[in-house]
Simulated scan of single mutants.
Amino acid sequence: MKRNKALMVQILLRLEENEKSQILINREDEPEMIDTLYFHVKLLGEAGYVTYDRVFADNKLKVFWARLTNKGYDYLEQVEAEQEDTSKLAEAKGLLTKGTQWTMTNIVSPIIVEYTNSLIFPSK
C-alpha cells in the first residue's frame, strides 16, 4: 500500500475536530476503508503524531482507535502558522464536517490534495 499524505492530514484534522481528540473506527462502519485508515494511523504513530490501539478477531482487524498527541497538536499548529493562506486549511476542515463517513470523495477531494501539496512543496 502506498502512503497517502492527503489522507494522513485528513486523519489529523479529524482527530483535532473531535472533542476528545480521538477517533474509533469499526470494521462494521468502515468495511472498505478500515485497513487503509489503520495503515495510515500506524504511519502517523511512527512519526509520533498519534497513539493508537487495535483489536483483532479471526485474524482480521475489527476495531482501532487513535488519539492525537501533543506532537500532533504542535504539527497542526505549525502548519497553520506557516500557511500563508489559512483559508485552505479552513476549507479542508469544513470539508471534513460535511460527511460522517470516510469516502473516496473526501480522500481525493481537490482541496485536501491542494492543501497537502502546499505543505509538501511550499512556494518560495
Rank of each mutant, 00 (worst) to 15 (best):
1 M>H: 14
4 N>V: 10
9 V>D: 06
9 V>P: 04
11 I>G: 03
11 I>R: 00
12 L>T: 10
13 L>I: 12
13 L>D: 01
13 L>M: 06
15 L>R: 05
15 L>K: 11
15 L>M: 09
18 N>E: 15
19 E>K: 13
19 E>D: 09
21 S>H: 09
22 Q>I: 04
23 I>T: 15
26 N>Q: 15
31 P>C: 11
34 I>H: 02
35 D>G: 07
37 L>T: 03
39 F>W: 08
40 H>R: 06
41 V>S: 08
41 V>C: 12
41 V>N: 06
42 K>H: 11
45 G>F: 06
47 A>P: 02
50 V>I: 13
50 V>E: 02
50 V>H: 08
53 D>L: 04
54 R>A: 03
54 R>M: 00
62 K>R: 10
63 V>T: 10
65 W>I: 02
66 A>T: 14
68 L>Q: 12
70 N>Y: 11
73 Y>P: 04
74 D>S: 15
77 E>G: 11
80 E>Q: 14
81 A>R: 01
84 E>C: 06
84 E>T: 12
85 D>C: 00
85 D>N: 04
88 K>M: 15
89 L>A: 01
89 L>M: 02
89 L>H: 04
90 A>T: 12
91 E>C: 06
91 E>T: 05
92 A>E: 04
93 K>L: 11
98 K>C: 01
99 G>A: 13
100 T>C: 02
100 T>F: 11
100 T>L: 05
106 N>H: 07
107 I>S: 07
110 P>K: 00
110 P>Y: 00
110 P>W: 00
112 I>G: 06
113 V>L: 04
114 E>Y: 03
114 E>C: 04
114 E>S: 08
115 Y>C: 09
116 T>D: 02
118 S>K: 06
119 L>S: 09
120 I>T: 14
120 I>L: 15
120 I>E: 15
121 F>T: 13
122 P>H: 04
123 S>H: 12
